[in-house]
Write a protein that binds this DNA or RNA. Sequence first.
DNA 1: TTGAAAGCGCTAACAA
DNA 2: TTGTTAGCGCTTTCAA
Lengths: 326, 326
Amino acid sequence: MTNIKEVAKECGVSVATVSRVFSGSDPVRPETRERVLAVAQRLGYSPNMLARGLKKARTQTVGIIIPSIDNSFYLGILKQIEIILRKKGYRMLVSFLQHGGTSERDAISLMASSRVDALVFTPRDRSNADLIGALRENTGLFQLFTDTYETIDSVTVDDAGGVREAVSLLLKEGHRRILYVGGDPRVSGYYSAYADAGLTPEDGLVCLDWSADEAAVCRMIREKKPTAVFSVAGQSEKVWSAFRSLSLKVPEDVSLIVYDDSVWARLLGITAVAHPLEEIAERLCERIFLRLEGNETAGEGGKITVSPFLIRRESVAPSASGTGNQ
Amino acid sequence: MTNIKEVAKECGVSVATVSRVFSGSDPVRPETRERVLAVAQRLGYSPNMLARGLKKARTQTVGIIIPSIDNSFYLGILKQIEIILRKKGYRMLVSFLQHGGTSERDAISLMASSRVDALVFTPRDRSNADLIGALRENTGLFQLFTDTYETIDSVTVDDAGGVREAVSLLLKEGHRRILYVGGDPRVSGYYSAYADAGLTPEDGLVCLDWSADEAAVCRMIREKKPTAVFSVAGQSEKVWSAFRSLSLKVPEDVSLIVYDDSVWARLLGITAVAHPLEEIAERLCERIFLRLEGNETAGEGGKITVSPFLIRRESVAPSASGTGNQ
DNA sequence: TTGAAAGCGCTAACAA
DNA sequence: TTGTTAGCGCTTTCAA
């Protein structure tokens, strides 16, 4: 592959001049510039970012590690981020985690040896604190959707708030037996909503078990006869399938709100709590650029929380069993 | 950041020895090896891939350019590919194209200057033949889902075959007025299916207009009164919405088969033609490794076509209007 | 089994 | 405005 030396020779200038033309670091006489550009084009020259990175100790690369949860919105955000990054001249190196496959540890090592300028990740725990600690001196670190390390910047979504808003809506429509199918951290929003309304949920209405399958969901529905269901990402599909197999109609027989909007929620007219993907990507990249190009060293306003929002569609109806008692 | 020299000094060996330990290029005395590893660990040493890449003219990186179509399965395949690549020690650099944003040309240049060992892309046309031509000497080039350049390896899906199979099924169920909503290249499968059955489709049953919106689809359905619809990826959602607004029940009032399986097709019980994502990722990576690590220089079996497959669910019913005439 | 040293392609002083 | 040159951190002959 053509290198800077060949371009310089062919052009009758020094390598420094060619370098200046391509990096824009110093002014170059316009005519010389044109000539260099023309020759480079003719020879198919493309600056070697490896060499540049080695010299400058900056790779113009941001690494991102995607956890193995397959929330499809994660991939949407990946796209958003890459596009913003590209506009600023950054590349994106991605690594997907996989149950039983690549460990977060390996992925971090990979990013480290690739000398990414910044790393975006979603640490579940602090088991790789050692690696992370070694990285933080030279690498911009950013937690996405989590705030596992207090000392590292983060962009998170106020999940509990989103749940609370959704459950409050259900309560306002008169529902009292609202089944919650989802994860642990967010469930606090469920209880807050009940508390806000001065109510207490019946026992057995909360399913925090991620491994609950369709059959388990069916069982809960048959047992507790909820008038509404609130379900989180991966579980919503099971809930929907359960409704189908129980021949329950939405919203006639049961109301439904899902956490995490998706194509299918939209198509089915299901009211959903959505993440502001663009906002997340923008705020995150903003912080990245500040860290990489600004004079900022670390934190200071490094903890960002964005609010999810409710998209009302047609899966919620007033409770048939009246608005007061259960 | 710690470099090889510091590790060497701290260890009392030469940089060459440390290099050998980390690259595994030459045998190193076990005791020395252990000592080097221990020191490296203690110092938090991580080999600099930039320097290595510069020296070896190999980056262990595969670039992938994702076109702006947002077929969600594209992102699934991205994940599959990255996981396979990682197992073999490769990194993945991704770039998303965007309508009105990043051009394919820019993305290719980026990959070129990053000196990726291989590039996977989906060229719509040959407008960047010049860049591609310059790359092919040193970079493994692979077309995914398209075969725009005859001289470049490709992994494609037999779309026309998939359409044909689906439409044949509809025909077999007695449907005669089958509306086709989708793109140009695949429509040949529609005609083949009719031809196979010794039939000719009525006029006006084929909509090749990608910009057709829900209203347009509604209009077609009202006009032509199809007993079945076959729709492609991006259009299927519009078709479904159209059914909803026309209060058409599937499969009672109209049968439906969609091209490209998705979460929502599954949840709604819609029969779909699916891509074998794992197979595509595997075959592609297989070729990449062969090119990068084998002794192979180019082509030879470089054109791979995989077959989509039909997933039967409950959106197809026998035509109510009889099996013979329309 | 190990070490010394040249050089991958680039940038950034420093000099002119 | 341009050229010379010393490295960035690594691999890899060649010698020992």
